[in-house]
């Protein structure tokens, strides 16, 4: 038995002794670039960061990037080549930023392409949302304090929807105070046939404001909280601009493939514009919600 064991041992040793110990911890990819940028009618210059996908982690230098950046308006056929700039980071490294002077058009689709010297392209197609209009309707019931607000237009995504309430009240020791409170409203927006519908619940928001004030300081029962105005604001975004779990958490979004819309590469290019609308409800409606003159 000892001889057999020794024989097995020698055979085993011979089998594994010849195994290679080479290792390749980075398998590489043919996808040449990673893009991060924003296309918007509200920006007078369009910008996109371009990172080369490399086989080793190193600080990026100011060396030229082997890339040709261009975009094409798919509807008009107009095409432009973007310029390269170097952005210096706080750690001393450099990032390539490509830019084009001019604003993007509402409702247009743009085909962005970045090609390396071998002709391999990273590409992303983004569609700028169409122009939109905010229509504030009357509550469906006379006694209701829920105000339907419609966003009319071709807007695939509504992000960062929030209402900022401006109000004032009298504090016992300090007199009149003017403040504001931002209330997130993404959960109250829903897609409808001609756009979006936001159900603004003035009574609930009044209670939120009241709780906020009470948590901060004392308030006299009279004259109460006077509503000075509501600002509705959101980001009208392209369809792909949709973070998972509804929030922009960098710890989640840093993972490649999470909210990525780039083909043959990595990253994300968003398209959209910000909307801001100021509104003061009628006094009777504000009073019904709880606000006082």
């Amino acid at each position: 038995m000892i001889r057999a064991s020794l024989l097995c041992a020698v055979i085993a040793a011979g089998m594994v002794a010849g195994c290679d110990s080479d290792i390749n911890p980075v398998i590489g990819t043919d996808q040449p670039f990673t893009l991060y940028g924003v296309v918007s009618p509200q920006l007078d210059t369009q910008r996109v960061l371009v990172f080369p996908v490399e086989g080793q982690l190193r600080q990026l230098t100011d060396a030229p990037l082997d890339a040709v950046f261009s975009w094409t308006n798919t509807e008009t056929g107009a095409s432009s080549t973007w310029q390269d700039s170097l952005i210096r980071q706080p750690d001393g490294s450099f990032v390539h930023m490509y830019w084009w002077p001019g604003a993007a058009d509402f409702g247009r689709r743009y085909d962005v392409r970045v090609a390396n010297g071998a002709g391999v392209e990273t590409q992303v197609t983004v569609r700028v949302p169409g122009e939109s209009e905010i229509v504030i309707q009357s509550p469906s019931l006379a006694s209701s304090t829920i105000v339907p607000v419609r966003v009319l237009g071709d807007v695939p995504n509504l992000l960062k929807l929030e209402l900022e309430y401006g109000f004032d009240y009298t504090q016992a020791s300090l007199g009149e105070k003017l403040e504001s409170l931002v209330i997130p409203y993404n959960e109250q927006a829903s897609r409808v046939a001609d756009g979006w519908l936001i159900q603004v619940n003035l009574a609930r928001d009044y209670r939120t404001v009241l709780d906020y004030i009470r948590s901060q300081r004392a308030i006299e029962l009279a004259p109460g909280i006077q509503l000075r105005g509501i600002q509705i604001r959101f980001l009208a975004a392209n369809e792909e601009w949709s973070p998972p779990a509804g929030g922009f958490d960098p710890e989640i979004l840093v993972q490649p493939g999470t909210m990525d819309n780039v083909e043959n590469g990595f990253g994300f290019v968003g398209a959209g514009y910000r909307v801001t609308h100021n509104w003061l409800p009628e006094e009777s409606l504000a009073n019904a919600a709880g606000f006082r003159q």
Binding site: V26, Y36, G37, L49, G55
Partner: peptide, 13 residues
């Protein structure tokens, strides 16, 4: 690793 690139958080205009 597949490779190394960069990241920037795109959350607004």
């Amino acid at each position: 690793a597949i490779g190394f690139d960069g990241f920037a958080l795109i959350e607004d205009i």
